[in-house]
Amino acid sequence: MVERQSPLELELRAGSHGDFEHGIEVILSETRPGSILQLAAWPGQEKALIAGIRAVTGLALPDGAGAGSTGGVRSVFGFAPGKFTVVDEAEGLASAFANVVTPAIGTVTDLSHGRTAIRIAGPKAEWVLAKFFAIDFALPAFPVGAGRSTMHHDVFAQIQRTGADQFDIYVFRSFARSFWKALCHASEEVGYEVQ
């Protein structure tokens, strides 16, 4: 495997930043998953694809638009009709799907090197993200496991809630550094730690 370099390397400075003297209210990190895939079902094949995702990852997808689930090591969520993002800490998830998602069911697209995964956690995570995205981050509207496709200006983002106060954001690798810097600026007022 090619050794992957983070686009955030130059800007990712571990430690406490911003107005942290009153306490750290968000934690920012790059999760660097080994595999980031997009799976798409042909019309009418959605159930077969969802069964395939369960077979490979062990994760059951709840019903509904944008529904998802996370097991820590692996996560999955719907981001469009019949389309799902699947993430694994380990590399090689695409080959695990190769024989499961047959050409009759749909497609597997390996975006592992094309997306950067940024995690924001802490009591003010919703507050900071609400400054970026015009969607409802409240827990009843955006439950744990669920995913959303949206954008911050021209930066397309997929967001999965992976905890009550934790979100994983997938952005295009080429936009990741500027998005990260914006996220740091937006977190200054609440005090943030980079891990």
């Binding site: 638009a65 944008g66 469009a80 009709p81 015009a134 969607i135 959303r148 496709s149 949206t150 954008m151």
Partner: peptide, 11 residues
């Protein structure tokens, strides 16, 4: 959006 719910026109 029937999938995503109410979104700003900019999307």
């Amino acid at each position: 959006c029937p999938y995503c719910g109410p979104r700003d026109v900019i999307e």
